[in-house]
């Protein structure tokens, strides 16, 4: 079992280095949240791990296979039925059966033959989750997957993601700008700043994590300070 290993990753857009000799290690099966201000390079790092951004300048990037992604938008093919979207790129005759099993896990077992455009935002995002899970990933990248959902749907999605993580045990890297979401879900929280991992904190609290827990409140304040919003929040 290998996790993620990144050494000396630099990524420039023009002359600005978005990622600057970044090092990162993720243990197999760990749940990590990556925080950062907008433009801090969170998404660039995730895209590099997903293989969507070319690695240059001699960096070492080791990622387990298969690696799958859930994006901020569901990104379903509107012309393919729900199960076909989940089975996209799967080989073999049992593609539909596997898609069906994955959809049942996210609670959409009855929507196999629905068209994506008839789904609600939350349902579509669950299909995207099923599509990522059906490949039995060893690394699951979540790129702000709950940002576009309403608050209630988001809470349900948090529970679902934790449940699926426990059941399948992939390493999860959740990119988010929501400090509370990071603390609720992850065992380890990273803050990306100036192209490097500036903060790296293990969160050793039992789940579900009570918002009133004093340790949690302290963590929240700490992360918000590193994100530069110290003076703005009471």
């Amino acid at each position: 079992m290998t996790g993620v290993r990144v050494r000396g990753l630099t990524r420039r857009f023009g002359t600005r280095a978005v990622l600057d000799r970044l090092d990162l290690t993720l243990a197999p099966g760990s749940f990590t949240a990556l925080l950062g201000r907008s433009g801090s390079g969170k998404t660039t790092l995730l895209r590099t791990l997903a293989g969507l951004d070319a690695v240059t300048e001699g960096a070492l990037v080791e990622v387990p296979r298969p690696t799958t992604v859930v994006f901020q938008e569901p990104r379903l093919l509107p012309w393919a039925k729900v199960w076909q979207n989940v089975a996209l790129g799967l080989a073999g005759d049992d593609a539909r059966a596997r898609a069906s099993a994955a959809l049942s896990e996210v609670g959409l077992g009855r929507h196999l033959d629905a068209w994506p455009l008839t789904l609600s935002g939350g349902e579509a995002q669950r299909v995207a989750l099923a599509r990522a899970l059906v490949r039995a990933p060893r690394l699951l990248l979540l790129d702000e997957p709950f940002a576009a959902l309403d608050a209630l749907t988001r809470i349900r999605m948090h529970a679902l993601v934790l449940e699926l993580w426990r059941a399948h045990g992939p390493a999860v890297l959740l990119v988010t700008h929501d400090v509370d979401e990071a603390i609720s879900l992850a065992d380890r929280v990273l803050v990306l700043d100036a192209g490097r991992i500036a903060v790296d904190v293990e969160i050793d609290l039992p789940r579900p994590r009570d918002a009133a827990n004093p340790t949690r409140a302290g963590l929240r304040r700490h992360f918000l300070e590193t994100l530069g919003v110290k003076d703005l929040v009471a």
Binding site: A50, G51, L52, P66, T68, V69, F71, E73, R75, L77, W79, A80, L88, G89, R131, R135
Partner: peptide
């Protein structure tokens, strides 16, 4: 382009990408 990128993440070959994503999208 986001759909094309997604198809790449899920390991579609170039041929499958054309058949499953680009041509239906252009239909």
């Amino acid at each position: 382009p986001k759909l094309i990128e997604t198809a790449q993440v899920f390991g579609l070959s170039r041929l499958a990408l054309i058949r499953r994503v680009i041509l239906p999208g252009a239909l």
